[in-house]
């Protein structure tokens, strides 16, 4: 099948998509956007988090066909040219990035949190990021990063 979807503001088209493919697979393997990650592909880890019409979702749980004529924003669409989004900048500065495989999902999820709640409390940050697994950091520096980003936005 053919899928037409707006990704990071650009109209994109994918051909020969098998009906069982996920939005994640289409982004990664057909549209050249592998930033959203494939850590579990079963909706448990949050590494594939993208905005679908402004709502964060696990792209691995969205069938590619469900994205037809909708708007997707991925981690690749957060920076403006060379200028990182404050959330991205804070993750690097705070040391919240080690292996970085969880980072794209955490960055999108934190970006959404700060859009909704500009100055979140620690319990609010924890609740918002509870669906994003990280195996390297123990989350302390992820919390530091979100606090830092909140202070700058």
């Amino acid at each position: 099948m053919r899928v037409n979807v707006t990704v990071n503001g650009e109209q994109r088209q994918a051909d020969d998509v098998w009906e069982g493919e996920s939005l994640l697979f289409v982004l990664r393997e057909r549209l050249g956007l592998p930033g959203s990650k494939n850590a579990c592909e079963q909706g448990e880890c949050g590494s594939c988090t993208v905005y679908l019409d402004d709502v964060p979702v696990c792209a691995c749980l969205v069938a590619a066909g469900q994205a037809q004529d909708r708007e997707v924003r991925t981690v690749e669409g957060l920076a403006e040219g060379d200028r990182l989004d404050p959330v991205q900048e804070a993750f690097v500065e705070a040391g919240a990035v080690q292996c970085g495989f969880c980072t794209p999902g955490l960055v999108v999820q934190a970006h959404d949190l700060l859009d909704r709640v500009p100055n979140p409390s620690d319990p609010e940050i924890r609740e918002a990021l509870a669906g994003n697994l990280c195996r390297c950091t123990g989350y302390e520096k992820v919390l530091d990063a979100v606090r830092l980003a909140a202070s700058r936005r």
Partner: peptide
Amino acid sequence: TSPQRPDGNLKVRGEFAYASDLW
């Protein structure tokens, strides 16, 4: 000192090439 990691920007932008990203 604690300078930023040189792959940090690529990783937060989703542009760092992990093994499963290769094509």
